[in-house]
Design a protein around this nucleic acid. Structure first.
Length: 258
DNA sequence: CTCCATGTTTAGAA
DNA sequence: CTTCTAAACATGGA
């Protein structure tokens, strides 16, 4: 489950358990992050996890050596804590074991997820040229990035170089709540629209995280519960529209978004 | 069988 | 260089 709120929810779920734990072994091998981000056992052997962090959709586990394990959950990745005698969860691609007997399973049916190791956490942000984290960015920081881009807004929000953490579902939600058409050019937003992007984005991400990214609990006033052909806009009751942008379906309300 | 899926990368076209 | 399309990756579910 992998957009920013899902990754953050997973991070919060595993952090208390793995922080302070010493790694005793790692088995399995999902494809590693490239380039130069290969996991080598000797670099994490007997290391203690000091804490976790996140940038966009990347999740980091900081080690006492200063280096970090890097997780990207792809489309279907998940991290599950299991105890010593628990069975290995289905679709487990890698398993990190700790000396206290607990284990962290990296499950991923579709195998798009990646696991790697880096000397420094920021190496990933540099190598992937990630933009600012979508949850942390401030309005004053976003304004000039918006103004300098001629991308259509849907492309803009999905572009991890501009802003890190937004995927297909939340991009649509942000545009819906900000009242912006997905094909609107970033630099051409009205001042009011431009000013609404960051607050809408932050409110949506915060709310989603507080609800542990459980779609079933999302407000009926959001677009997310209405992402289906024939559904009606929760604001104006008009029919939601669906177009293919960047190879993915984009849902929006043609009368509320311009 | 067909279509679709919360992501990223890459080759190639304007 | 920038923007965008299509395809590829691998797999399950409707």
């Amino acid at each position: 489950m992998p957009e920013l709120p899902e990754v953050e929810t997973i991070r919060r779920a595993i952090t208390p358990q793995i922080t302070g734990s010493r790694i005793s072994g790692i088995t399995g091998s999902p494809p590693t992050l490239e380039p130069g981000l290969t996991v080598f056992w000797t670099w994490i052997e007997d290391r203690r996890i000091e804490g976790t962090s996140r940038h966009g959709k990347y999740l980091f586990a900081g080690l006492d050596s200063g280096s970090s394990l890097v997780f990207h959950l792809g489309m279907t990745g998940d991290l599950l804590l299991v105890s010593e005698d628990d069975p290995v969860p289905p679709y487990t691609r890698a398993m990190v074991s700790f000396i206290d007997g607990s284990r962290l399973a990296f499950t991923d049916p579709r195998r798009f997820g990646r696991l790697g190791w880096v000397p420094d956490r920021d190496d990933v942000i540099r190598a992937k040229r990630l933009g600012p984290d979508a949850l942390a960015i401030q309005a004053e920081e976003l304004a000039p990035i918006l103004q300098r881009s001629r991308q259509k807004m849907k492309f803009f929000l999905l572009d991890q170089h501009k802003l890190a953490g937004i995927g297909n579902i939340y991009a649509d939600e942000i545009l819906f709540q900000a009242g912006v058409h997905p094909l609107r050019e970033a630099a051409s937003l009205t001042p009011d629209q431009a000013a609404r992007i960051q607050p809408s984005m932050q409110d949506i991400l915060r709310t989603a995280i507080s609800l542990e990214a459980d779609f079933d609990q999302y407000p009926g006033s959001w677009l997310i519960p209405h992402r289906a052909p024939g559904e009606r806009c929760p604001v104006c009751s008009g029919e939601v529209d669906r177009v293919m942008i960047a190879g993915r379906f984009t849902y929006f309300c043609p009368s509320c978004q311009e």
